[in-house]
Design a protein around this nucleic acid. Structure first.
Ligand code: MN
Ligand code: MN
Ligand code: ZN
Ligand code: ZN
Lengths: 123, 123
DNA sequence: ATATCTTTGCAACTCAGTTGCATAAAAGTC
DNA sequence: GACTTTTATGCAACTGAGTTGCAAAGATAT
């Protein structure tokens, strides 16, 4: 995916800092925290978080809070659930759809917690 | 529910601090954070968190991380999903079961995020 | 009584994320 | 070009939830 194309008709200037964040998120197969990518980007963390907030305001990036007190970010794709392992804290995107409807409520996101394939076989 | 009975055959001494935490959690219809109950208990927050950790080790209390950076605690009941409103941050226990199975994984907890009944009607 | 173990309060600490402020880089105006 | 206004960045200081070290208090055991 081309970043200039991705950013089209969003009101965001494409700075070097922003490009490097978006590139990292595009390359990932799962949501990433600031911690996950801070080695691979050069900006100050204030710049990182301020840009992430912009991305979210424009709907380019989504995020959620995990168990480990970190916030995880990913490029906004078609909605899908996420799995968080309560043993190793790994986070995975879930492809299988979870059908669920709660009367009067509008569900936007689903987070499943439990033991991942690796951790379920360890005691 | 009687607290002495609830605590039976758990290796936990029932101190005043512990009783007041458990009473508050028993009376609640939804998970509570330290912030929610600190006005109604008298202990130091270190004591609160240390006791909560004990409760969780004994399986008496469960918890999860919300959007607002706070941890929410409730008496462990039969597993059920929780709903977190992304507008007003209210947390509710969901009674309707969410059926979902992920091959090789062990699901322990389900968190639904979205707009609650009040917030879905406001723009 | 005295020794041992557990709980508590206080203060200091940790760590992710935020904010104020000064500088730097863009963008707009003439 | 020069000048003004807006936006982005880095740094340091701050915030707030939760944790930890330590000494005092309470409880349990012998
Ligand atoms: Mn995902
Ligand atoms: Mn509940
Ligand atoms: Zn795992
Ligand atoms: Zn709401």
């Amino acid at each position: 995916m081309n970043i200039e194309k991705f950013i089209k008709n969003k009101k965001i200037k494409l700075t070097d800092a922003r490009i490097s964040i978006l590139e990292k998120l595009f390359a990932a197969h799962r949501p990433l925290s600031y911690n996950d990518i801070k080695e691979h980007i050069s900006m100050d963390k204030a710049t990182f978080y301020r840009n992430i907030i912009k991305f979210q305001e424009e709907g380019l990036v989504s995020s959620f809070e995990s168990n480990d007190k970190n916030r995880y970010f990913e490029i906004t794709k078609s909605p899908h659930p996420h799995f968080i392992c309560t043993s190793c804290n790994i986070i995975e995107c879930v492809q299988e759809p979870v059908v669920f409807d709660l009367d009067g409520y509008q569900i936007e996101d689903i987070i499943l917690k439990g033991k991942c394939e690796s951790c379920v076989n360890v005691k």
